[in-house]
């Protein structure tokens, strides 16, 4: 089926694609490179900077100055916690909508997605006050709840589209085999949907990891994830390029690596299963 492409054409495409790829990746590459330079060298002109000696001192300073480990751990707890909680709520809901559809199922899905359209600022004030009055400001538990709720519609949607691909007859077979609803979901549906659940999880972890509205508004230090940790560099420390780069590299590295390793599942997840 595939046609023979001329080698020249392939070479031209190769050059163009690599060039664009590098341009797009450049800001990240530059940040990583800069993080291994001293402050003095980091603000030099690009070529001078590149030829300056490499050092790990910025990482040491960032570590000394702030508690990276705490913020990293907060990010892990927030993104994993909210994702698992959302899955726990979403799997039964998606099961119901995919396998026992009613006349209003589609409206219900649309409504769920529409809650995602509600701008966070619309509820910023009461959320802030509620959090303040309940003593939830700067607490991980409160933020896990919020992140769960803001991503829940997307999780339900994604699981719904995955579940739709599973033939209902198999679930009926399990019912005939004497499975209770719990067994049906636990032993039949969930294992069959593992790829879908995995990509849902991945996307949700990334969204939660990078969420930068509520995490900035509702945390200050103790429960602050990496988004807040980086925002604290916005001024005036922003001018310390090497330290900023080191901090940035540490903030994005975990998710970058996770994302690269799970690219395939992620693309499937990103498209809501709408693009095959």
């Amino acid at each position: 089926m595939a046609r023979k492409t001329t080698q020249t054409r392939k070479a031209v495409v190769t050059i163009a694609a690599w060039l664009i790829g590098i341009v797009i990746f450049f800001p990240i590459l530059w940040t990583i490179l800069m993080s291994f330079k001293s402050e003095g060298d980091a603000i030099k002109a690009p070529l001078a900077m590149l030829s300056s000696p490499w050092t790990l001192e910025s990482y040491g300073e960032v570590q000394a100055r702030s508690n990276y480990a705490l913020h990293f751990w907060n990010s892990v707890v927030l993104s994993l916690g909210s994702t698992l909680l959302a899955l726990l709520i979403a799997i039964p809901a998606a099961w119901a909508m995919a396998f026992v559809p009613g006349k209003r199922t589609k409206d219900l899905l649309m409504w769920m997605l529409s809650t995602k359209m509600m701008p966070a600022v619309g509820v910023l004030v009461p959320m802030y006050l509620m959090f303040r009055d309940l003593g939830l400001l700067d607490s991980r538990i409160g933020l896990v709840g919020v992140l769960t709720l803001i991503n829940l519609p997307i999780v339900i949607w994604m699981l719904y589209t995955y579940f739709k691909e599973i033939p209902g007859e198999i679930l009926e077979a399990s019912r005939m085999d004497g499975a209770s609803l719990r067994s049906e979901i636990l032993y039949v549906l969930t294992p069959m949907a593992v790829p879908g659940i995995a990509s849902t999880m991945l996307l949700n972890i990334i969204l939660a990891w990078n969420e930068a509205f509520w995490t900035l508004q509702l945390t200050t230090s103790k429960a602050a994830p990496l988004t807040q940790f980086i925002a604290s560099y916005s001024s005036p420390e922003g001018l310390f390029y090497a330290k900023l780069s080191a901090a940035s590299t540490m903030a994005i590295a975990p998710i970058l690596i996770l994302g690269w390793f799970s690219q395939k599942q992620l693309v499937r997840g990103l498209t809501f299963g709408a693009v095959k």
Binding site: P167, E169, I170, E172, A173, S174, R175, M176, D177, G178, A179, S180, V188, P191, M192, V194
Partner: peptide, 21 residues
């Protein structure tokens, strides 16, 4: 009675085997 309680067994057109087992 729900299907699980009827003591009947069924063979489906698509076989409906559990693919992960």
């Amino acid at each position: 009675l729900p299907p699980a309680k009827r003591g009947l067994a069924m063979v489906f057109q698509s076989y409906a085997l559990y693919p992960h087992m």
